[in-house]
């Protein structure tokens, strides 16, 4: 059997069951006869128990490819959902001040528990228009240059930076190459290492290679349980290795792109558990988890002096890598 290609496809049977339950609920609501209604409701309860079991089975022991699908799910909370839930007085700032504006990276100042912070994140869209407007979450150079502006302001006004990472990759098109997508990403990473204010990044969906690290080189990096973080999209890896992009599921295993692997290799600080059935089944619970984690890490970082915040970040990345020492 071939692997499902989308989250919807993977969850198809579960979605059908949920749909059926919703319809049964509607029917029960309309049922005037109390006895029949009770009988219907009892049936619905059974169905719901069955659904919960189904979710349990589906979401226990998820493989890397299933995580890729969940991380990309269109129902998953996106950056602006977190912004709305976790912050107040968010004012979105736009433009790179060099002639261009990007809608795949968003950001601006906000209050987090009453404290000023700078929020930066990738934003995806949920329908065709939104997806096009957000360029599928693939930022162009101007997105990273806007992020650099926000990082600069954060430093100037002593605001911690909270990044939300959710991108398949940076935009690979001709326009982006013409305007220096590589330089924009590199300069954004470099800027993050100049900061003396604490920085916390949360990978909420797809951590897609250079496009992700461009806003994620932070003091602390957290990953939601079902998010992924990878040097290359699995399909791209399969295209290069085997010239078969359809072998993405195989590549996803080899790339070790799950949160558990990232933690094992010392590349992230914490895995944030998701509610049963994934972040999208209970966004409110997810927001609470993320909020609590940011509070904890930000709190610890804010005890450090600005200079130590900076060296802490340098030392963290300085230690990343695995190699052997040859004899002789």
């Amino acid at each position: 059997m071939s692997s499902p290609k989308t989250h919807k496809e993977w969850e198809r049977e579960l979605l059908e069951l949920e749909d059926f339950i919703a319809k049964a609920r509607e029917a029960a609501r309309k049922e005037a006869e109390p006895k029949s209604r009770e009988a219907l409701e009892a049936k619905i309860e059974d169905l719901e128990k069955g659904r919960d079991k189904f979710i349990d089975v589906m979401y226990s022991n998820l493989g890397p490819w299933e995580k890729v699908l969940i991380a990309r799910a269109e129902k998953r909370p996106y950056t602006l959902d977190y912004v709305q839930a976790l912050f107040s007085e968010y004012v979105e700032l736009q433009g790179d001040r060099r002639g261009f504006a990007d809608n795949a990276i968003i950001g601006g100042p906000a209050l987090f528990n009453g404290q000023p912070v700078m929020v930066v994140g990738h934003q995806k869209g949920r329908n065709i228009q939104e997806r096009q407007f957000r360029n599928f979450g693939m930022a162009k150079p101007e997105g990273y240059r806007k992020a650099i502006r926000l990082f600069d302001m954060a430093e100037r006004f002593r605001m911690p930076v909270i990044s939300f990472v959710d991108t398949p990759a940076a935009d690979p098109g001709v326009e982006s190459e013409s305007r220096g997508i590589s330089e924009a990403i590199a300069a954004a990473i470099m800027k993050m290492f100049e900061l003396t204010v604490p920085t916390v990044a949360v990978v909420i969906g797809e951590g897609g290679s250079g496009g992700a690290i461009g806003i994620a080189a932070s003091n602390r990096v957290l990953m939601l349980e079902n998010s992924v973080y990878s040097v290359i999209p699995p399909e791209g890896c399969a295209a290069i290795l085997w010239r078969m992009p359809e072998r993405g599921p195989d590549a996803s295993k080899a790339l070790k792109l799950t949160a558990a692997s990232a933690l094992e290799y010392g590349l992230i600080d914490e895995i944030l558990p998701e509610p049963k059935g994934g972040a999208h089944r209970s966004p409110v619970e997810t927001f609470a988890t993320v909020k609590e984690a940011i509070e904890k890490h930000l709190g610890a970082l804010q005890k450090l002096s600005p200079e130590v915040v900076k060296t802490d970040r340098y030392d963290k990345y300085r230690g990343m890598g695995r190699f052997e020492i040859a004899e002789g």
């Binding site: 590199a186 990473i189 290492f193 290679s209 250079g210 992700a212 690290i213 080189a217 973080y229 990878s230 040097v231 080899a254 790339l255 070790k256 792109l257 692997s261 990232a262 290799y265 590349l267 990345y317 300085r318 990343m320 890598g321 695995r322």
Partner: peptide
């Protein structure tokens, strides 16, 4: 994998 991506930051 991700170890390589982190070399970009390092």
């Amino acid at each position: 994998g991700l170890l390589s991506l982190m070399q970009m930051a390092k």
